[in-house]
Nucleic acid binder design. Structure first.
Length: 210
DNA sequence: AACAACCTCAACCGCATCAGA
DNA sequence: GTCTGATGCGGTTGAGGTTGT
């Protein structure tokens, strides 16, 4: 935002030991700061953010530098204009994974977790509320759905209709993606893998019960 | 034109986890 | 096994822009 809004004030800074908080720059980054940060990262690589902040001569904490790099300065970052296909994928992944923005972002090349989180909060959550209100209305209208139908709906809620997509080749989806790749969590941390497998386990049990 | 209400999104915060000593 | 610093993540905030009255 406006660079005039840049202010210096005492901030709570995780990078500083207690009792030795310094005046840190905060607020919007300037082009000059971006340039300095990018220069230092090019030399030292994107790690040891505290040192990077110091070497770049920025009155910024390491965390702030990391965030700036991850969200804006990193190569191959896409900015704005989330396509319908991407939106569709975000919706599906969110149904599958919940608010695991970094996981979702990991499956949208060039997109950051922060961007997806913001997009969700400002656009998609509202959309979903609208759709839910509409579907509530239509449910009251006629409750003729069969047990099977309800089960499919439940699956859709939890799995983002991924199962449907797998079986019918994404007929209702505008986004074409490689299912093997989509379900490949092999690069995720053990915790994530555990979480995903638990999710699938519960989902399988629900299927069996139905 | 002036103001209020709402929206967007960059940035911050706190906490959890990881990795190395 | 424990401690400590670094890193990563999700929730939240707030400045600035946009829209409505």
């Amino acid at each position: 935002m406006a660079e005039e809004s840049m202010i210096k004030r005492e901030i709570k800074n995780d990078d500083q030991p207690a009792g030795k908080k310094e005046m840190m720059n905060r607020g919007a980054w300037t082009a000059e700061e971006d340039r300095k940060l990018a220069e230092v990262i090019e030399i030292h690589g994107p790690k040891r953010w505290k040192k990077i902040a110091a070497k770049a001569g920025l009155d910024r904490c390491g965390k702030s530098c990391r965030l700036r790099w991850m969200n804006y300065l990193r190569p191959n970052i896409k900015r704005g204009n989330i396509t319908d296909q991407e939106e569709d994928l975000i919706l599906r992944l969110h149904k599958l994974l919940g608010n695991r923005w970094s996981l979702i972002a990991g499956r949208l090349p060039g997109r950051t977790d922060n961007e997806i989180k913001n997009y969700w909060n400002s656009h998609l959550s509202k959309k979903i509320n609208q759709v839910e209100k509409q579907s509530e209305g239509s449910r009251r209208e006629g409750s003729r759905s069969t047990k099977r139908r309800r089960v499919v709906e439940k699956k859709g809620e939890d799995m983002g209709e991924v199962e449907d997509s797998k079986s019918n080749g994404c007929e209702d989806s505008k986004y074409e993606f490689d299912h093997d790749d989509f379900f490949d969590f092999s690069n995720e941390s053990p915790l994530t893998l555990e979480w995903v497998s638990k999710f699938l386990e519960v989902d399988n049990k629900l299927c069996e019960l139905s």
